[in-house]
Structures are given as structure tokens and as C-alpha cells.
Amino acid sequence: MKTATSQIRPAMVLGVMACLTFAAGTVPLTSSAQDNRTIATGSNIPLSADAPNEYVVKPGDTLWDISKIYLRDPWYWPEIWYLNPQVANPHLIYPGDVLKLIYIDGQPRLTVAERGGDGSQRLQPQVRREPLSRAITAVPYDVIAGFASRPVLLDKDQVEKAPYVVALRGDHMIGATGNEIYAKGIGDAAAEARYSIIHVDGKLRDPENNDVLGYTGIYVGAGPVAATGDPAKLILTETSREALQGDKLFPEVTDVKDDFVPHAPTSDVQATVIAVREATVMGQYQLIALNRGSSAGLEPGHILAVLERGEVVRDKYKKGGLGAAGNATLKSGSKVQLPDERIGLVMIFSTTPRMSYALVMESQKEIRQGDSARNP
């Protein structure tokens, strides 16, 4: 899976903004928040009515969590974060840090008042990308890493370039746990490196022109490289369905970029949901794919609102009649398109030129293929 390319560290939030570049000691800071935390204070930043004056960052917090504590609309985070030049690594937020809500020239700003974390983290003995600190991220690292290591929505280029199962040892037609398979295209993968096997299934098409943008994938199983080369030999140590010739391989441990922050797109976005991870009710951190990508200006961290298309109903009362009363039929009356209804928020975490992957952050009802995604 292609990974996000944003180089913004968690909570760096657009440090180039002029409003965040005050030098220490040149701007008077007030240590307490104003009582009326609404847009009516003269600020364009929609603070939560119960935003606390101080908040101690907890292990497991995400940037989205903290944004929701202080903002009615979390994508305004870049507007409120204040880079305190007196604090080491002011771009990052760690568990134990004390955040304080202050006002500068009447505008609410959130800053690190006291460092509580040491900014260090012992790396785990795994071949995986780990943050070099315990700095919080926009969403849990394991959520994105899980989608990357077992991809179920695949872009077209990703599928075409991925290694694949060329044969199964012992004249097997299908593979199961304990079987050995041969894969082409792995390259110089190290012995014992683990790969997920994904069966490529249905096509993901752009509803506007019917172009194939990608494919759905079905997780087959996983296993380590037993013998390097091309083809390489792998042993299936787990399977959830049969492995077949042509199935694709993806590294089980993937370099995942998670250093982005929630923010609204700067240009108008008109996208369509072309796939969901599962045909079930959507919950937080479930995956969707959109038919817009980096060529449309989307980038990791962008927040979009998802809208359910309004129903088409019959207006049987336009002429002042009694509608269904009398001889009216179900098909009588002109058609009326009801307005689209907002049903959730999603955050982009990875893009290709023509497609994006997003995580559901909030949803009021099931998000379906064909729903639209717009600026929040």
C-alpha cells in the first residue's frame, strides 16, 4: 500500500503560520481561558463550550481525541496550536504534558505549559517503523499499520507491481497452513521476513467514467520467507482460506507514515465512496476508499464529511390535493429529490494520484458505496 508522504510531525500543525511565530516574551499571555468559549468572542475558532483550561495528555490519547476536547470541529486544530519557543520540541505532544488554553490578542491558543514526558521510547525488537518518541499521533499507529500489512482495498498500480504466488510445492492446486509456496518478485527480502497473502477480488471503478482505480482484496494467510531467490520459497504458517496461484504478497511489516494532523482541505473536494472495508455498519477507524487522490489536492490529514444521498419521493400534494386519499396511486405526483444528509466524518491517511484511503472518525449510520464526501 502506498503510504502517506506528509512530513508534518504530530501536532506540528502548520508552524509556518504567522500567527504562531511570536517570540518568547514579546506577546503577553493570559493564563486563564475566557468564560464564553464560542465564535461570539470574536474568534473564528469554534472552541468546545466545556474546553478545559488545562489538560494532561494520557497514554493512548490521539491528536483527534485532544482536538475533540478543545474544538467543536477537530479540523481547526492547526488554527489553535501555539508553538511555544521556550519548550524543547514544541511541535510534539507527549503523554504527561500539560496543555494550557491561553488567549493571544483575543484569539484562543493551546500550548504546552509543562513537559511531563521524557520524549523517549525503547524500540521493540521488530523490523518495523516505530516513532523515535512517544509523541502522540493523529490516530493509533496500529490501526494504519494493520491496514497496510493486510490490505483489503488496493490501488491498481499496487496490484500490478506486487509479488505473486507462482506455484505451490508438491503439485498442490491450493495451499493451506503448513504448505510451501513459491513467489516471484519479492527481490532481496531477508530470510524469515513475513508476508501476507492477499487474493485480488472485485474491481474498484470510478463512478464518473467507469475507470478501474483498484481492487478489493481478501486476506488469505501469511508466512515467512524460507529460502531467498526469485522465486523465493515461503511457508504458510496461517491461513483463513485457500492460497492460489496469482495471489499477491505484501510485507507483513510495513513502513507506515502516521505523522499528520487533522485539517480541512483548502480547495473544494467532490468525491464518492467507491468501497468500504466490510459491508457492515461502520465504526470508528474502519476503512473506505474514495475516487479522488493527490491529483485532486487531497493529502493525509484532510477531514471530509460523508453525506448520504437524499431519497427521491413523490409529491402528491403539489396541487392542494389530499394525496393518497381517493383514487391517488403510489406513482402519482412529481418526483422530489430530498437533500443529502451528513452521516459522518473521515480522515485521509494515504493517497495515490487518483484514489484515497480514509478512516471513519465519526458516523451516525452506515456508510455505503456511492455516498459522497465533501469539505467538512
Rank of each mutant, 00 (worst) to 15 (best):
A193P: 02
I144A: 07
H91M: 00
T21W: 02
P262R: 10
H172Y: 10
I104P: 04
Y182F: 14
D188M: 08
V16K: 09
E278M: 14
A325E: 14
A167W: 03
I343A: 03
I303A: 07
T239L: 01
L83M: 12
R292N: 11
V16N: 12
A183G: 02
G42P: 09
E362V: 01
S295E: 15
V312T: 15
V87G: 04
C19Y: 08
V87C: 03
G117W: 11
G178A: 07
T266R: 12
N210P: 04
A232V: 11
I39T: 09
A271H: 04
Y103P: 00
S48W: 00
A227V: 15
K365G: 07
I45N: 02
R314H: 15
P52F: 11
G223P: 07
S295R: 14
E160K: 15
M12P: 00
K318T: 11
P108A: 02
D73H: 08
T41D: 12
T177C: 06
D259N: 13
A138T: 14
S356E: 05
E252V: 09
N291L: 07
V56S: 13
R129L: 06
G370N: 06
M17H: 10
A190S: 14
G117N: 13
H91D: 06
K2W: 04
G170Q: 03
D258N: 09
T177K: 12
D258Q: 08
D268K: 14
P108L: 01
R354Q: 13
I39W: 00
T266F: 10
R169A: 13
K319Y: 13
G283T: 12
T5G: 13
I66Y: 00
A49I: 14
L83F: 10
A51V: 13
S356F: 03
D50Q: 15
P85W: 02
G223D: 05
E311W: 01
A11K: 00
M282Q: 12
L101I: 08
A176L: 10
D50F: 12
P231N: 08
A167S: 15
K248M: 12
A324D: 15
Y103M: 04
D142N: 09
Y94V: 05
D268G: 06
A358C: 10
L287E: 03
V346C: 01
R241S: 14
L298V: 04
V212S: 11
V269F: 01
